[in-house]
């Protein structure tokens, strides 16, 4: 009897989460899975007659996997991630260590300044950077042109890295903040002990701080991998500024275009499911990888 009451109050507290989680997470995924197994069939003159949805089995999945553009999009975001994620995480770590070092000045100001880009919505950030990339508008391109260096940030070869630059600008500060939060939770005695033992600032950073913020590093890396695979708003916005971003530039963009330009919701659903599967495999794969090598540190 005394056990029943906590159970009931726990249920009351859990209910709002469960309802929202089911309505906004489980249900849409279930619906997408269901849609991905259907296809449209049309009849009547020129197909303008009746439309019926029929079971298609895994037809949409094989179609998606045979679409070279879909696979190329994956290749592109993987290349993007392989370069951009390490650069950003290293950058965030360096900034966090600098701001948490003993000699740092103006810490609140710089912390806010670095974090600020994260407060700018991705679409707005892309528009802002777009203006800095477009020749004839951009002061950067103009200035470089004047000193004799012609750069095209939107060419076939460079546009991916221009997008990487936007993503790095947006998220480095956010990741830095996560790392700082973990750094501040490290007990000060550890540093004192290290200094007494004669450790240099370098050694403190390398042998104490970095190992202790490992969980935060893993967390930010996993988030970044997921974010990379979901790359969408930056290419969507820059697409109107350059013809070198096609409708299938990233898997997410292709799924969007299949759904809303080609009106093939079923194929788009299949692509979205495949994208989610790849994101899961990569995220859990990374966790497995660091979990295995990191066993020693976490006793």
């Amino acid at each position: 009897m005394s056990r029943a009451r906590p159970a009931r109050s726990a249920a009351v507290f859990l209910l709002p989460f469960c309802v929202l989680f089911t309505a906004c997470f489980i249900a849409p995924i279930g619906y997408a899975l269901y849609q991905s197994l259907l296809k449209s069939q049309r009849s009547g003159p020129l197909g303008f007659g009746r439309e019926r949805e029929v079971f298609a089995g895994l037809g949409n999945y094989t179609h998606a996997l045979q679409d070279g553009r879909f696979l190329q999009g994956f290749g592109r975001v993987l290349l993007f991630g392989a370069v951009q994620v390490p650069v950003m995480i290293v950058g965030a770590t360096v900034l966090a260590l600098l701001l948490e070092s003993a000699s740092a000045r103006w810490v609140p100001f710089f912390r806010t300044a670095y974090f600020l880009p994260y407060g700018v919505p991705g679409v707005v950030a892309s528009i802002l950077w777009g203006f800095l990339y477009v020749p004839g508008i951009s002061p950067v391109v103009d200035t470089l042109h004047r000193v004799g260096w012609d750069v095209d940030f939107l060419s076939n070869g460079t546009v991916l890295w221009s997008i990487a630059n936007i993503a790095t600008w947006e998220f480095t500060g956010y990741n830095m903040l996560v790392l700082i939060a973990q750094l501040t939770s490290v007990p000060g005695e550890l540093y004192e002990a290290a200094v007494i033992d004669g450790a240099s600032a370098w050694q403190v950073a390398w042998r104490i701080k970095l190992p202790l913020i490992r969980p935060a590093l893993v967390l930010t890396t996993v988030f970044s991998i997921i974010g990379t695979l979901q790359l969408f708003s930056e290419p969507l916005v820059l697409r109107s500024l350059t013809s070198n971003i096609d409708a299938a530039y990233t898997p997410n963009l292709l799924a969007y275009n299949e759904a809303f330009a080609a009106n093939n919701y079923h194929l788009a659903a299949a692509m979205a499911v495949l994208l989610a599967v790849v994101a899961c495999v990569l995220s859990f794969g990374f966790l497995r990888l660091v979990g295995r090598t990191g066993k020693g540190d976490e006793r």
Binding site: L46, S243, N244, D246, A247, A248, N257, A261, A262, N263
Partner: peptide
């Protein structure tokens, strides 16, 4: 019947 998709293909392929 699907000019929006055709225009997308046109843009992609002419760029290529």
């Amino acid at each position: 019947p699907m000019m929006d998709a055709t225009f997308q293909h046109l843009g992609d392929e002419l760029t290529a």
